[in-house]
Design a protein around this nucleic acid. Structure first.
Lengths: 137, 137
DNA sequence: GGCATACTTAACCTTAACGTCAAGGTCAAG
DNA sequence: CTTGACCTTGACGTTAAGGTTAAGTATGCC
């Protein structure tokens, strides 16, 4: 067998913070809330692997859609925690299903919003033309 | 000419609050922040028309996507305020364009999120099967 | 070992977005 | 004109999500 763990790249907290463009404080705060649990060095410093990094990205994505940290916690509760009893898994699946349809709703809603803004855009452009001609306001 | 204003249905604040499932406090707060400016009765009570109602819906939609009220204020600044000088309109258009592409980005991102959750779902189901058989955890 | 960086926890501070409560005004029904 | 439901402003309270600062520890490099 060759050397071990070929896919265990690690990051420090500030590396991740820089990469994800957030503060270290935020990352620690997410940990406080139980959203991530990185390993530690002997010296007690946090070490993040790519799974942790992926999870952070997931958290940030959730945030961008207006979910708060509690909701996100529930949402990603279905990734690797729980993973114990069949019942838990089933519940997670159920929850995930709910969230998925919620997301689909959001997508259609966003499309509606885009449409709405397009309408407004059209009106503004029309108005611009009107002004260019001389139709009084 | 027949009777005037055929499309001027009005609402009280609590009617809207109930319909939109938010508190009256929130609605007043949005007004405080300059996001809506309903008419008043002689007795100084707020009266909302359907345009106001539509705007409230827009605000809530924005919120659901993680925009804060300041961002939303800017965003809807392009609906009927400004509407005065050509320069303003042009700026609004520019801003709207930016927002539109932002929205498109969000849509793709949401799709990615949905995909990700589907992957998780698959894993959970697989795990469920494994347990059903008897492969130890 | 010594130095510069980066990391740790703990404590306190800030801001947005409301919730809540008080003290009083409005409005439609009777 | 009274009553009850609803509305007004104002002020203060609360909560989530961090920012900030302090005092001390780890790590990498010379």
């Amino acid at each position: 067998m060759p050397a071990a763990t070929p896919s265990t790249k690690c990051f420090t907290i500030s590396q991740l913070a820089r990469e994800l463009n957030i503060s270290t404080r935020s990352i620690r705060y997410y940990e406080e809330k139980g959203l991530i649990s990185p390993q530690r060095t002997r010296g007690n410093q946090r070490v993040y692997n790519r799974r942790d990094r992926a999870r952070l990205k997931l958290i940030l994505r959730g945030k961008r859609f207006g979910y708060n940290l509690n909701e996100i916690a529930e949402m990603i509760g279905l990734t690797d925690v729980n993973m114990g009893e069949t019942e838990q898994i089933k519940k997670s699946l159920e929850y995930g299903e709910k969230k998925l349809s919620e997301i689909r709703d959001r997508i259609t809603e966003l499309e509606k919003l885009a449409q709405e803004m397009n309408t407004i855009k059209g009106k503004l452009q029309q108005r611009l033309k009107d002004i260019a001609n001389g139709s009084v306001p």
